[in-house]
């Protein structure tokens, strides 16, 4: 079942994120089961239950010192994080666009 915001009835999607243990970099769980630096490679979950299940499975990667603190991030229909904090995590510090994980000169996208 696709999650919806009770007030707006907008579709809510999810991705699973964490910080990489070795260097703290922001990573996203992919459908293939590895952790990517790129949000665009993230597995998209359409229900909160599915992403919570994935979060539980990710504990094995926590225990193997691969990642830290996995949690679900809400995305909008353009697959952009809902909150500014998660946008900054996904696309790098807005003051250093060259540090965008895609390593291209682009700023944090608007919705």
């Amino acid at each position: 079942m696709i999650s919806t915001d009770q007030n707006t009835q907008k579709e809510t999607l999810f991705a699973l994120t964490a910080n990489r243990f070795a260097d703290g970099r922001v990573v996203w769980l992919t459908a293939q089961g590895y952790w990517s630096l790129l949000l665009e490679e993230a597995q998209i979950f359409s229900s909160k239950g599915d992403v919570e299940t994935a979060q539980q499975h990710a504990q094995k990667d926590v225990l193997s010192q691969h990642i830290l603190d996995p949690y679900a991030v809400e995305l909008n229909s353009n697959l952009i994080p809902q909150t500014t904090r998660e946008k900054v995590r996904a696309f790098g510090p807005s003051t250093h666009p060259e540090f965008n994980p895609r390593s291209v000169q682009e700023t944090m996208p608007n919705e």
């Binding site: 910080n19 260097d23 703290g24 970099r25 830290l68 790098g92 540090f99």
Partner: peptide
Amino acid sequence: GVYLQLHSY
């Protein structure tokens, strides 16, 4: 002196 911040240590 080591913190974990948004993008890195």
